[in-house]
Design a binder for these strands. Structure first.
Length: 800
RNA sequence: GCCGGCGUGUCGGAAUGGCAGACGAGGCAGACUCAAAAUCUGUUGUAGGCAACUACGUGCGGGUUCAAGUCCCGCCGCCGGCACCA
């Protein structure tokens, strides 16, 4: 058969669509499989080869599952709210709705040309009001449960995009969208209390199958630490100064206290402080420092001693000075620390710079040189003296602190609450109302969706004001509670809102009564396998797990964890080995490949190019290698034989069934395809293949190159679809060959290979090996000490 | 600093402790062709040798083992995450 990929691909895409074979069946008796890929942001640039690689993994699994008799849900949708569309809208003065619709259409056509077996009847668009109605609904549920709060805080603000950013969107002090420097700006913003779910997000990781590094990243991000809260008294003041420490065992080594520049204690007792001027100066300097300065100048400890406030060590009554310094953050712990310079390097550096005492309480280091953070015998520590184990001393001191009512065990998380707002147009309106007499009042559930008003101008307001604030007809409303004049919240939700629950909507996309019916959720959830990028591990993955845990607690979904299994695809780099980018001109357009070499070739190549999880450069000639492979497959029909199967080819085929089947499950797509290539080399050498053997071969290939496989399947006389044909089973008995080649070593060095009977007896096999000329020569005149035979693997003679 | 991961030909990459380099690309040689492309065949870790063959070879140095890319100890280098987190 001549390989006319264009004709074949178009034909089968139409046939599949006509037959609707990829539509998931709710409540089917078959076992279910829910495969999920991260839905795309429909940018104007269209699809990237990265999308193809990201979707191809679950695509292969989904196709295999259908052949294995599963009822498969493999949906697709569009995460369409967000800045790029809005920026483009501003630039071209086109409504983002129009841009979004155009882009979604383009993406859909492109995806269909690659032949992905998505269920196109369940497409979800986060910007559709029937979708974001439920995003708003979940938000109101959270509001109802006290998980939404407003706080005047220092926020990450991007002066270029004019928006407040979450910590996740401003990692490294750079705006995630435009990469300019983020500044700290005071603003009253909305937060979601994700920290309330920190423990659940952490412990939930035990019940899911994520790659180790993914779990590790989430654990780091959540950043749980265990320690103790301790109350220090301040001379002459009622208020206690509470600190958090992971090393309460070093309490007797405390020689000073440090509080964050923003700590409220300062303003509260300003009248007792004699050097307020110096302190104000220092605070102003700190506020001016950028994130960059704050992290780059780590070594130089700065601070000011607070004259007029003196703390008392609650265990020994010693009076100690209190400083403000910016190496203590208001956002972590209590914003105050006890400083133990002998056993903490930062405190040590500070003590050296400010001439504070250093008291050693753990033996083992040299505190004249640096802080000692290791284990050792406790000294200078009253009831702790003589303890040698950190764990024991911590337990003891917490016991004493608790007894005396001056402290208790506690935990802290690095994870911050989620700044849940954008001062932009193209996002879900936050359904809250500011009433002068009732305060914050939620929009009643029956008034959802709160629809984004139509506007002419999409520019963000100056100073972080939302464009919605300019629309009086939107802003002015009646309070749902008292009926008086009130104003709507004008911030919109962040990009990550819509994607935090989209996988639930695929299950019941048309439901206008609930976000999805419990019966359907119970049938489909959890997602069996979710593939996506590493960049979403600490944002989208954490956020959506948080929402899902919340919905579980509310009885709206049936599982605490949304994703049973997660895999990660590595980047496709440009042919030059650099990250693909327009400016470098090294971008490969997947549609060009589909046009020139075909969708099947593209699909095979992105999975064959390397380890699925690793970043791999694109290589044009390797792509053509995949095309050559498919051309050879297309020509197999010419060597079909009516004759008997040969035992060696049959063994190769059954080994391939086993290998391809397991490789797909382990995301080892590259070796699965290599196995098929090896097999076709074997077939070509054999020069003939039976019809039933060829059927097995193309079934194994079908998930990777579905169009070509479908075409050959029909040429072989089938009227049904190979996409639904049963996946081949391997037969261990048929994998056995009469003879097998094994290496023969002498003292671990390979001398030759010999052909031995499969599973041969030790004595017989060793006799064959010894009879080999080269082996015999190597053994000649030597004293044979040991003979090792690992069946079907290796023979090793140890000689002296 | 803490936590992970990785290091194999010219390149992408294979190898449940058991023949290192599967498979693909690239190179070289040949066939076909007026020629080129495409296709097909052979060959391709390094060094020495006409050859049979020999020695060496998975970042470096040790170790365990009949046998180490794989396990252990100590380094070096690269990548990723967290980070003045108390």
């Amino acid at each position: 058969m001549r390989y006319n990929f264009k004709k074949i691909e178009q034909k089968w895409q139409e046939e599949w669509e006509k037959a609707g074979i990829f539509h998931a069946q709710d409540f089917s008796d078959k076992p279910k499989f829910y495969g999920l890929v991260e839905f795309p942001y429909p940018s104007g640039a269209g699809m990237h080869v990265g999308h193809i690689k990201a979707y191809s993994s679950i695509e292969v699994v989904a196709r295999k599952r259908r052949m294995q008799g599963y009822n498969v849900l493999f949906p697709i949708g569009f995460d369409a709210f967000g800045l790029p569309t809005e920026n483009y809208a501003v630039k071209t003065n086109t409504h983002p709705r129009i841009i979004t619709d155009t882009n979604i259409k383009k993406f859909s056509e492109q995806l269909q040309k690659v032949g992905f077996s998505f269920d196109w009847t369940r497409v979800v668009d986060t910007t559709d009001e029937n979708y974001y109605k439920w995003t708003q609904w979940i938000f109101l549920k959270m509001f109802e449960k006290g998980l939404v709060f407003r706080d005047n805080a220092l926020v990450n603000y991007c002066p270029h995009c004019k928006v407040v950013l979450s910590n996740e969107d401003s990692q490294g002090g750079k705006c995630d969208i435009c990469h300019s420097d983020v500044i700290q700006k005071p603003k009253t913003v909305w937060y979601l209390k994700i920290t309330e779910y920190a423990d659940k997000l952490l412990s939930g990781l035990k019940d899911v199958e994520y790659p180790e590094n993914v779990k590790m990243q989430q654990e780091n991000w959540i950043g749980k630490s265990t320690g103790a809260f301790v109350d220090f008294t301040i001379e002459g003041i009622e208020d206690k100064l509470q600190i958090y420490t992971t090393r309460p065992d070093t309490l007797f080594g405390v020689t000073f206290m440090v509080i964050a520049p923003e700590h409220p204690l300062i303003d509260k007792y300003a009248d007792r402080i004699s050097n307020m001027d110096a302190i104000e100066n220092y605070r102003n300097e700190c506020a001016k420092k950028t994130e960059f300065e704050r992290t780059q100048l780590v070594k130089d400890k700065t601070g000011v001693k607070i004259e007029g406030l003196e703390a008392v060590n609650p265990l020994n009554g010693k009076k100690i000075p209190v400083f403000i310094a910016d190496y203590v953050m208001m956002g972590y712990g209590t914003g105050a620390i006890m400083a133990v310079p002998a056993h903490d390097q930062r405190d040590y550096d500070f003590a050296k710079a400010f001439g504070v005492d250093i008291i050693e309480v753990i033996k083992g280091g040299d505190i004249n040189v640096e802080a000692y953070t290791g284990d050792g015998e406790m000294i200078n520590s009253d009831f702790l003296n003589g303890f040698t184990n950190k764990k024991d001393s911590i337990a003891k001191v917490i016991e004493v602190l608790t007894e005396r009512g001056i402290g208790q065990a506690g935990v802290q998380f690095k994870m911050k609450d989620w700044a849940f707002n954008r001062q932009r147009y193209w996002g879900e309106p936050i359904p809250l109302i500011h009433c002068p007499s009732c305060g914050i009042v939620p929009v009643p559930y029956d008034q959802l969706p709160l629809v984004l008003p139509d506007v002419e101008q999409f520019e963000p307001g100056e100073d972080g004001e939302s464009p919605l604030a300019k629309i009086e007809s939107y802003v002015n409303c009646k309070c749902p509670k008292c009926g008086g004049d009130a104003k709507r919240e004008t911030d919109t939700m962040p990009q990550w809102a819509g994607s935090s629950w989209y996988f639930l909507r695929y299950i019941d996309p048309e439901n206008d009564k609930e976000l999805a019916s419990m019966d359907k959720l119970k049938y489909w959830m959890p997602v069996d396998w979710y593939n996506g990028g590493m960049e979403h591990v600490t944002r989208h993955m954490i956020y959506s797990r948080f929402w899902h845990h919340f919905l579980y607690d509310e009885g709206i979904v049936n599982t605490p964890e949304p994703y049973a299994k997660r895999s990660i695809q590595g980047l496709i780099l440009g042919p030059d080995g650099d990250k693909m980018s327009k400016s470098k001109g090294n971008v490969v357009d997947p549609l060009d490949i589909v046009e020139e070499l075909g969708a099947d070739t593209l699909r095979v190549y992105v999975l064959f190019m390397g380890d699925y999880g690793a970043a791999t450069p694109w290589n044009d000639s390797s792509v053509r290698g995949c095309k050559r492979f498919l051309e050879r497959v297309a020509s197999l029909e010419e060597i079909i034989t009516e004759g008997e199967e040969t035992k060696s080819l049959s063994a190769a085929i059954h080994k391939a069934i086993k290998k391809v089947s397991s490789d797909i499950e382990e995301t080892k797509f590259n070796t699965a395809i290599a196995t098929l290539m090896t097999l076709i080399n074997t077939i070509t050498k054999e020069g003939k293949i039976t019809k039933s053997e060829l059927e097995i071969f193309i079934k194994l290939l079908a998930p990777f190159a579905p169009h070509l496989s479908e075409e050959i399947w029909h040429n072989l006389g089938h009227d049904d679809f190979i996409a639904l044909a049963p996946w081949p089973e391997y037969d261990e008995a048929k994998m056995v060959e009469d003879t097998i080649e094994v290496g023969v070593q002498v003292n671990g060095k390979l001398k030759n290979t010999v052909s031995i009977p499969f599973n041969g007896e030790k004595d017989a096999v060793l006799a064959i090996a010894k009879a080999d000329e080269k082996v015999a020569a190597a053994l000649e005149g030597k004293n044979l000490v040991k003979e090792i035979y690992v069946p079907n693997k290796i023979i090793n003679f140890v000689v002296k």
